[in-house]
């Protein structure tokens, strides 16, 4: 018995050490917010010499017209509607795939799976040109429109899998009772679909929040910049970069994600486990 306890103890220690190594960059980033440039470079000390919140205040204000408050608002204006639209469209499409055996269902579903593999790089140029013609560039429509029509096959796939796991009797009996298909969906299946909706919502939130490739291409005005672009701008807009301010804003920009993750980690893990998403 004793031997086993020692082994468990060693396992904990090893896991702890490795965990600290894993998280070290993030921990270092936190302390870097309180350091001067001289402390950040060429120094091994982890803890800062002082604990001034100046970097957060100055960083938040920025030297430009817009403060990070604006960038946060922009990010929410971009991310929240995108996420909600994705959930609405993907769940109804998934319902169509999972519960109706119209001719061509299987073929269409195969096409959907195939689009999982479609690299974004290949469609970005024509999409850009399409959005240009529609006058949508430099607006969040470039994100809302694809989300509104279920162009996220990952989430459709995930919800189809989930719906197939729910007994058909549930909604079929409701259908027999005279509910329309849409009512069946809203009243019976949607509540049951909650875990999948949560997972999909969390991932879409995360991905859109972190997205740089698309925002960089589609969004041009600084007044519409989300956090990712604002951060990128912060590393070369001023002549002598105050790295503590950059680090502080980088940290602040990911705090919502970390909070979200800790409050809903169950759904994250489930989401990855059921569909094998890249996360």
């Amino acid at each position: 018995m004793k031997k086993k306890e020692i082994r468990i103890g060693i396992t904990y220690i090893l896991l702890g050490i490795f965990g600290i190594i894993m998280l070290f960059p993030v921990i270092w980033m936190f302390f870097a917010c309180f350091k001067t440039n001289n402390e950040i470079f060429g120094s091994l000390a982890l803890l800062p010499e002082g604990w001034s919140l100046d970097a957060f205040i100055q960083g938040w204000k920025t030297t430009g017209t817009y403060t990070y408050a604006q960038y946060f608002i922009n990010t929410f204006l971009l991310v929240i509607p995108t996420t909600l639209l994705t959930l609405a469209s993907c769940s109804i499409v998934a319902y169509g795939f999972a519960r109706f055996d119209f001719p061509g269902n299987q073929f269409l579903f195969m096409v959907l799976i195939a689009t999982l593999m479609l690299p974004n790089a290949i469609i970005i140029i024509p999409r850009y040109s399409l959005f240009n013609k529609l006058g949508w560039l430099d607006s969040y429509m470039t994100f809302f429109a694809p989300a509104a029509v279920g162009c996220y096959p990952f989430f459709v796939f995930m919800m189809v899998q989930f719906l197939r796991g729910l007994p058909r009797d549930l909604d079929e009996s409701a259908y027999m009772d005279g509910c329309g298909p849409f009512q069946c969906f809203v009243k019976i299946l949607l509540p049951l679909l909650k875990p999948a909706l949560f997972s999909a919502g969390l991932f879409q939130f995360l991905w859109t929040w972190n997205d740089f490739f698309n925002t960089n291409i589609y969004i041009n005005s600084v007044s519409k910049y989300p956090l990712s672009l604002a951060l990128r701008m912060s590393i070369d807009v001023t002549s002598n970069i105050q790295w503590n301010q950059v680090m502080a804003m980088a940290l602040v920009s990911v705090i919502p994600l970390i909070i979200l993750f800790f409050s809903a980690q169950k759904y994250f893990v489930e989401g990855i486990a059921t569909t094998g998403m890249k996360g």
Binding site: V26, N210, S228, A250, V254, I258, G279
Partner: peptide, 10 residues
């Protein structure tokens, strides 16, 4: 999992 949470972020 935390590092993955931040994957792709600037």
């Amino acid at each position: 999992y935390i590092p993955s949470l931040l994957s792709g972020s600037v």
